[in-house]
Design a binder for these strands. Structure first.
Length: 105
DNA sequence: GTTATGACCCAAA
DNA sequence: GTTTGGGCCATAA
């Protein structure tokens, strides 16, 4: 059931600590869906407002912000991350070497 | 059941 | 570290 995958993805995203970011592939793998990174994004898009999932802590491989493209948060994500202590690079990019979340254990 | 699209990832240049 | 091309899975029409 697809709904079950959403629960897993939510659980993984919820594990992301403040001031850290994770990539879709990382989440997909941790959620038990290797190679289904796209589905993670699709799930986040289907996430309800009361899901309590910090989707703004989820970025793509290059640490770039991935929004839906339709002026949806257009920088809201950046603001939220900055609020949590995440530092952005010159062109709206994050230094994954420092801020990429390490589930490690 | 098939076609088309998507908040992506990986390997190579 | 960034960009280009190819590929995987799931949802929608």
């Amino acid at each position: 059931m697809a709904n079950d995958n959403i629960s897993k993805i939510e659980a993984v995203v919820r594990r992301i600590p403040a001031g850290k970011v994770a990539t879709y592939g990382q989440i997909a793998t941790l959620a038990g869906l290797p190679g289904n990174a796209r589905q993670v994004g699709a799930v986040l898009g289907n996430l309800p407002d009361d899901s309590g999932v910090p989707w703004h802590r989820v970025v793509n491989s290059l640490g770039r912000i991935s929004e839906r493209g339709s002026g949806t948060s257009e920088g809201l994500q950046r603001h939220e991350l900055l609020f949590e202590g995440v530092v952005f690079s010159d062109s709206e990019r994050i230094d994954l070497s420092v801020y990429q979340w390490k589930h490690k254990k």
